[in-house]
Amino acid sequence: MKSSGEPNIASDCALIFDVQDLSVQDGPGIRTTVFMKGCPLKCKWCANPEGQNLHVEFMHIKSLCGKNYNCVFVCPYHSATAENDYPEFNHSICNDCVTRECVDHCPSQAIKFTGRYLTTDELIKRIRPNLSYYKNSGGGVTFSGGEPFLQAGFISNFIENTQPLGLSVGVETCGMFDWEEVKKIANKFDFIYFDLKCMDSDVHKSVTGSENVKILNNLKNLTQMNNENITVSVPVIPGVNDSDEQIKDIAVFCKDIDIKRIRLLPYHFLGESKYANLGRTYLMEKDLSVPQHILAGLKKTVEVLEIHCSIE
């Protein structure tokens, strides 16, 4: 969902915040997950907050910080200060920094800029040596993020260029994308993990910042093109969608459009420290968790409708 304020990215270049090999939970086999930066949703529980904004961002990794304050001394913009225990940064200044003196002078490598532009060729060059690992394990490449379809042109270009390699490509999407851009490639994926948070549009808006109408339409459209390969992913968030009714609503909707598989992803707070590193505040309560027996109950709710259900 591009807005006019965001940079226009050519289809052979994408903003990516991580390329991770040996991803074993993002689809079958040994996979490389390409984390694409930028997402139209702003889910409160997002575990990849660095994937939300479609621009490069400054991160100060506190767990690595040796507190030697070189950053404070070398910053020409006086963005780093030593007022508290850790050095503090004015992230709005740092995000735009191109000289990055602090990176060069930090002995603990505690500062990084997340997000880099990668061309299709560069990405293919990056994954090509892994091909035999994909082949032997039935793996491949998975686009994740962020919202990969925010940069759909890049993915389309990638798929076109990797066809001769026999590469398996999968995608994990939040569902908020322009159908017109995605429909051309919708049937090229070996699997699509499609996030569905809840059926109630108001609740959806309050926790993700957007209504869900477009998402539901996109899912319907997708099912008409690539039905067999779609799995609906439901992040199970305490107090948001962990009731039997809400999961049932999702399952009924899925049943209607003939979705075969749902996976439940219980809430975790592993991304929590990244918020502070980005200079943001984590708004979820940290100690929340979904008890096993609740998950098991939700799984049953789904299975009653003869939809295959797994808990990741």
């Binding site: 040996l22 074993v24 086999g29 040994i30 035999s132 690992y133 032997n136 394990s137 039935g138 793996g139």
Partner: peptide, 23 residues
């Protein structure tokens, strides 16, 4: 431990070993 979770994790590790040994 999460890398190797379940039978799928086992199989993935085996294919990793096999591929390394292929090289």
């Amino acid at each position: 431990p999460t890398v190797l979770k379940g039978i799928q994790g086992s199989k993935k590790l085996l294919s990793l070993i096999k591929t390394y040994f292929d090289t």
